[in-house]
Amino acid sequence: MTENGFDTSCGASSGTRILVIEDEDTITEFLKTGLKYEGYQVTIAKDGVTGVDCAREMEPDLIILDIMLPDKDGFEVCRRIRRRDSDVPILMLTAKKEISDKVKGLDVGADDYLTKPFSFEELLARIRALLRRSGRAVDSTELRVVDIVLNTETREVYKGGKKVSLTPTEFSLLELFMRHPRRVFTRETLLNRIWGYDYAGDTNIVDVHISHLRDKIGDKPPCLIRTHYGVGYAFYPGEGK
């Protein structure tokens, strides 16, 4: 934990570089967009040779590697990357469900695998876990902003040393804001991310919960959680001081 607190608390620390080696355009598109939104730096390599070169040149913090590549298979690519860099976490994407493929992947040095079609959320979870295990990203369990301390493991929140009791929804909202400072979230996005993709209720529920959250953490102007009228909400830690 650094002194100023909020820099490292940008959950997916903005410097984390991910190399995606995958030849399907549509898949690389959404991976690039989605991962950027989560604060990662994304580089795409469309075949194995480029992938190995990129891995050497940019020294990524994590590699997402498809097994089916046009020039050589992912196992070979994985083996080559491992020869240079024994450390970098490699997450393999496989279209096959066969156990043998998974075992082979882990044998040649992959750290984890996902079967297509996978959930993007699960991919994010795996990425976070891999980064944490490799010690490359400071994806801390304790987030600090000004005088608010949020522990994702115990799910406790302290404001100026005093414990604040939050509902699970309020806790998730606060965690999301603290992990993505200054980013504006629309009500739809908040609904999708906190209430789930299949939640079909009114967006007013977001306003209700935000209002409760503000009350509980004693958010007074200039607010930490600010309303962008007609758009949504954003969290401004620096200005709160």
Binding site: T26, L93, F118, E188, T189, N192
Partner: peptide, 14 residues
């Protein structure tokens, strides 16, 4: 995979 991923990315804020 592309469809599912794209949809999720969209719903998560994109």
């Amino acid at each position: 995979t592309a469809l599912r991923g794209s949809l999720e990315v969209l719903m998560r804020g994109a």
